[in-house]
Computed example of a mutant assay.
Amino acid sequence: MNTAFQPSGNEVKRAAFSDHRRSGKLSASRGLVTASLVSKGPMTRNQLADATGLPLASICGRCRELLDMDYIEVAGMSADSPARQVLGLTESGKALAVEAAKGVAS
């Protein structure tokens, strides 16, 4: 089998991520995460997955992006065993959530 014209695994992943981002689902997922943190307060990634209905893998990716953009922060550790990071909104994350809510309301 000639694989000279087959894309690599990384190329396929990048293309899929780009398609996902262009579809708007990525922004919608981030919105679900921030909305859950606004309504229910700081939560672990597992709790966010339960609250939003998104797969844990999606939650972890969106949380990483939101952490990198300084919209959420590690607010502490859960008392569970094993301990998990509890994530909460930063001031810029709260402002983002308020702006998003205004956009939805109008």
Rank of each mutant, 00 (worst) to 15 (best):
L26C: 01
Q6H: 13
T52R: 08
L26I: 02
R14N: 09
L48K: 00
G31Q: 09
L48D: 00
R45V: 04
S39Y: 12
S18V: 05
P42C: 08
K25R: 14
L54S: 04
N10V: 15
G53A: 11
T44M: 00
V12S: 05
T34M: 13
K40R: 15
K25L: 10
R30P: 01
R62F: 03
R62E: 06
L26M: 06
N10L: 13
D19N: 08
A35G: 12
S29K: 07
F17N: 05
L48G: 02
L37H: 07
L48E: 03
A57S: 12
L56E: 04
S8L: 15
F5V: 15
V12R: 06
A35K: 11
S18T: 13
K13E: 13
V33Q: 04
L56C: 01
L54D: 00
C60Y: 00
R14Q: 12
P42L: 03
G41T: 05
V33W: 04
R22K: 12
N10W: 11
R30K: 14
Q6M: 14
S18P: 02
A49T: 03
L26R: 06
S23P: 02
R14V: 10
Q6W: 15
L48W: 02
P55R: 11
S29C: 07
M43I: 02
S39I: 10
Q47Y: 00
K13R: 09
A57C: 01
N46F: 05
A16Y: 02
P42G: 12
R45L: 04
N46A: 13
F17Q: 04
F17I: 03
S23W: 01
R45W: 00
G9S: 15
R30I: 07
N10Y: 11
S8N: 12
H20C: 02
S29R: 14
C60L: 06
R21V: 08
S8F: 13
A51S: 15
A28C: 06
S23T: 02
G9Y: 09
N46Q: 12
L54T: 01
S39E: 11
A28H: 09
F17A: 08
V33F: 04
T44V: 01
K25P: 02
V12D: 04
S36G: 11
M43W: 02
R45Y: 03
N10A: 15
V12K: 05
S18Y: 06
L32F: 15
R14C: 03
N10H: 13
A57I: 07
F5I: 12
G24C: 00
A49V: 06
E11G: 14
K25E: 08
I59R: 00
V33T: 11
G61F: 03
A49P: 05
V38C: 13
T34L: 15
T34V: 13
M43G: 02
S8T: 14
S58Q: 08
S18L: 05
S36H: 12
L54F: 04
